[in-house]
């Protein structure tokens, strides 16, 4: 707005006005991915908090229950899965809140691009910096709980698949509660019941690996759950965001 701006002639200005946006969803998606990654990497605490929480919760169990390796080994799959699930849930509240507070969410809703796709990009970044690190970290914590050897790979794989579903389902809840001042608790109440199927088959896969059964069936069901949420969640997220902005 400084005095440096050169006055446009009327024809030039009219030309400029008529420049149609040459719709590039790919461009918009890539930019959203890049922006969200950059934002999270600049606020590292938000990436590290769920990981630290995960490690701390797992540390509490040997202290609270018993350091007996045999006992711990039997309950380890469930413990690891529940703790990872809660850690993922913890980070969901901030998924859309920053954008809601500074007005970017309004802008996101007013782009000519499909909101479902842009929402999916945001969830993808969330999984990449929360779900995936949790999955990679789980085997290390598995050692602490004396998880039997041979099940580490399945643990990481089941968590990687499962947390993707968790991020997608949780994003629906985050989108619904983003307009509320204290949406955190409500978010957990909304989302936790929906996490149960993922938990059953995720922990089940690790248990099966320990017992030496085939894990393919469990992992296939986790994959199927992911496919289904991938199909429906983006639309639900978009609709929920619209409801939140309307409120």
């Amino acid at each position: 707005m400084a005095g440096t701006e050169t006055p446009m002639t009327d024809t030039e200005a009219a030309m400029a006005l008529h420049r149609e946006p040459h719709g590039g969803l790919v461009v918009a998606l890539r930019a959203t991915l890049k922006r969200d990654l950059l934002l999270l990497l600049r606020r590292r605490s938000e990436v590290l908090n769920p990981l630290v929480f995960f490690a701390l919760v797992i540390t509490l169990f040997p202290i609270g229950i018993s350091p007996d390796p045999e006992l711990l080994a039997t309950i380890a799959p469930g413990l690891l899965w529940v703790a990872a699930l809660l850690a993922a849930l913890l980070s969901l509240d901030t998924l859309f809140r920053g954008d809601y507070d500074d007005g970017s969410l309004e802008q996101l809703l007013l782009t000519p691009q499909p909101l479902a796709a842009l929402g999916l990009a945001k969830v993808a970044v969330h999984w990449l910096l929360t779900g995936l690190p949790l999955a990679l970290m789980a085997p290390v914590l598995g050692i602490m709980l004396s998880l039997p050897a041979g099940s580490y790979g399945v643990l990481a794989l089941s968590l990687a698949l499962g947390t993707a579903s968790l991020s997608l389902i949780g994003a629906i809840g985050a989108a619904l509660t983003v307009g509320l001042a204290r949406g955190g608790v409500l978010l957990s109440l909304l989302v936790l019941p929906l996490y149960i199927p993922v938990l059953i088959f995720g922990a089940g896969a690790v248990q099966a690996a320990i017992l030496g059964d085939g894990v393919a069936a469990h992992l296939a069901i986790l994959g199927a759950l992911l496919a289904v949420t991938l199909m429906f969640a983006p639309w639900a997220i978009a609709a929920s965001l619209r409801i939140s902005i309307n409120g």
């Binding site: 934002l39 600049r42 606020r43 309004e106 802008q107």
Partner: peptide, 16 residues
């Protein structure tokens, strides 16, 4: 595709 809306909140990310 014809609209440019600037809201009450500027929609600018502080970290960027």
């Amino acid at each position: 595709a014809s609209l440019l809306y600037l809201g009450h909140a500027p929609g600018i990310k502080a970290a960027l």
